[in-house]
């Protein structure tokens, strides 16, 4: 986006994808209540596409399962994400994509908090503030070109 067609981080380190969650007997048992856990939230966001590369956020290690915290009983979710380089201009966009994905995929009882892993980005505070502000998020999604990019990040890749 910035700097024409040149990529900011042209040769990122690629991480292995984790496998599908293993199915347990409890998952198939009608009577067991499965709580929403960290892995489930991580599964929601790990396949989000990176705005720059044909890779997922998981493959770039932008999101990791250890940085996802959920409390089903108290209906709170907290996700930390790590931009690939400290000056990444895509940080806000990535954060917005994660936030929108969670908004669309979680019951509305949840309070969703998305922020940058402390100490990994130059303008961490500004981005965090932007992402926490409900109205600014809503306004961003009114902007059709921004919404377009977010939707592209969220669409399932067809290979």
């Amino acid at each position: 986006m910035s700097g024409g067609t040149r990529l900011e981080n042209a040769n990122p380190v690629i991480f292995q994808r984790s496998g599908e969650r293993l199915l347990t007997a409890a998952d198939e048992d009608e009577d067991v209540h499965d709580p929403i856990d960290d892995r489930e939230i991580f599964d929601l966001i790990r396949s989000i596409n990176d705005p720059e590369h044909p890779l997922s956020l998981e493959e770039l290690n932008v999101v990791e399962q250890v940085r996802v915290k959920v409390n089903d009983a108290e209906s709170t979710v907290s996700v930390q994400f790590t931009p690939t380089i400290p000056h990444c201009s895509m940080a806000t966009l990535i954060g917005l994509s994660v936030k929108v994905k969670l908004l669309r995929s979680l019951p509305d009882r949840f309070k969703i908090d998305v922020h940058i892993t402390p100490g990994t980005h130059a303008s961490e505070e500004a981005v965090n503030k932007q992402l926490a502000d409900k109205e600014r998020v809503a306004a961003a999604l009114e902007n059709s070109s921004l919404l377009e990019v977010v939707n592209q990040c969220l669409s399932t890749r067809s290979i």
Binding site: R104, L147, E148, N151, S155
Partner: peptide
């Protein structure tokens, strides 16, 4: 959600 939305 992606239906009829820009980029979708």
């Amino acid at each position: 959600f992606l239906l009829g939305s820009p980029g979708g």
